[in-house]
Every structure is written in structure tokens, then in C-alpha cells.
Amino acid sequence: MKTSLLRAALPLAALAVLAVVPVFAIDSFTRHLFIIAFIYAIIASNWNLSLGHCGVFNFGHLTFFGVGVYTAAIAAKTYGVDPWIAILLGGPAAAVAAFLIAAPVARLKGIYVVLVTFAFGQLVMQLVLSQSATTGGAQGMVRIPYLRLGDYSFLKDYKLGYYYVALGLLVVSTLFLKLVIDSPFGKSLKAVRDAEDYAAARGISVSRQRILVLILSAIFTGIAGGFYAIYLRVASPDVFGFGTLSLALSMVLIGGVGTTYGPIAAALALTFATEALAGIRGFEEARFIVIAVAMILVLRLAPGGLLRLLELLVPKSLR
């Protein structure tokens, strides 16, 4: 009883703290870090849906994000779509991309899932690079239209508006994930992950599940991508690279594969940690090494993620 109460109360308390952060953090840089952390939190927690909860070795998750980035950028800049709508368009666009890759992936096993999902990301990146007339090619797109709300300008409020939009997106995304995971569908996901043959024998279609889970995990990732493009006002093919991929992956791992809030907490912690490291002279590149080493250590010493480790360390009476 006490346990479940605390479990429910902790995220709410965290949300309350995050909601008042801008009151104390009045400089735009701190707020910027939070916004980036929220975006990564959405990426990581949604990735966890396919990777952690369903056991699909999807290494193309950042592709969904990239599709969202470019969809919003092209919609807003090239076609003059309202940036609010452009952000949301990232969702369905990423879902379509997920559907395209899910169909072949659902039939594959093991390492081939990793290879094909990764190759899919490269495919989309090559498409972006080759269509420079539309996407700006290797240079990317700049000066993408920014958000407005009536007369309110999001450019002159020290990122206050963007902060709350990002936080709002994270909250909605998290509620969505909880809804999915707690649904009968979410429970059947775990069954498939833990005992594929048994699940198949019980009449659960493994392929259909994988397709559905990839699509579901793509929606908010794509919207986050759309927001990323509109917020930073640039779209660059870097989002498809190994760098972003491994950073997001480390958040899932360090936070704890298969947990709900782990990747979110890890995204916040790692964003600030890497930023702090970047401030140290000579650590601009070394911070990525630090994260990679942290990832290895977590896999080695606390495979359930740091949140699990914390749970083990905290005495039972407090839980």
C-alpha cells in the first residue's frame, strides 16, 4: 500500500519540481538544457517501449526522431504550415516510417533486426542527403519558422514558453506510455519478450505485436523530433549518426531497460552531466568517452540500470 502510494507520488512530486524550475532558473541556458533533456527523455522512454518492454532490437529509433525533425522542418519552412501543426505532423510521419520498417523487421531475428533497423536509418539519411533541394543536404535546413501563440513570441521570453511546451510533451508522452504498458496489450508484450514460443502458442501474433509496438514507439519520438526542429530552428542529418544514437541508448541503459521512469531520469541526469563535463577544458570530446564508459559499467555492474540499483540500496521500509 505504502509502496504503491510512494511510487505514484514520486513522479508527481518530480513533475511539480520541474513545473516550478523556470521560476528559479531564469537564464535561457539552464532552461535550454532542460528542454534538450526533455526531448531526450521522450526519445529514450519511447525507445524503451520497443527495446525494453518488447525486446525488439530496434537500432533505428533515432530514425523516427529524424523523420519527425525533417517532416516538421519541411512542412513549416517549405510549405508554410503553422509550426504547431508541423510539430504534430512529426508523429504520423514517424509512425509511417515505423510501419515501413516494421513489416520486414517483424519477420527477422537476432542480429539481423539490429542490422536492418540500423540500415534503415542510413537509408533515410541517404535520402535526406541526396534530396538537397528539399532537405538542404549535408548542410541541413536553417531559419525554420518558430512558435507563436497569438501575439506571444517564443523568441523573447528566455525560452520560458518552449520549456513548458517541452515539459507538456514529455508529460503527455509518459502518460501515453503508461497507458500502453498497463493495457492488456502492454502485458502481452512482456509475455512475448520473456517467452516467445509460449506467447505464440497462446495465440499472440508476435509479428503483429512488433509492428504495433514500433509504430507506437515512433509517434511521440516523431513529435519530439518535430519540436526539436521548430525549437532549434535547424534540421541537420547529424540526428541519424552514431553520436545521437549512442547517447540515447546510454540513457535507456543507464536508466534501466524495461522501467518506466528510468530512462527519463537518466536523460535529465546525462544531459546535465555531459553539459557540465563540456565546461571542463579538454573534456569537450572526452565527455562522450565518459558516457560510453558509464554505459559499459552499467551493463557490467547493474544490468537493470541505476534506478534498479538504487531500489536495491534503499532499505525496504522506505519503499
Binding site: F57, F242, S246, F288, A292, V293, P303
Partner: peptide
């Protein structure tokens, strides 16, 4: 093991690349 080693070798790649850059 398959997935874990994909991740650890990915981490090794990052370490080597950033290390070479430094």
C-alpha cells in the same frame, strides 16, 4: 549477450573515435 555486446562494442567505437579525435 547478443544485444549487450552490440551495445558494448558500440561504446568501444565511440571511445576509439573520440579518443582518436583527442
Amino acid at each position: 549477450m547478443l544485444l549487450i555486446t552490440v551495445m558494448t562494442t558500440l561504446a568501444a567505437m565511440i571511445i576509439l573515435e573520440k579518443g582518436a579525435l583527442m
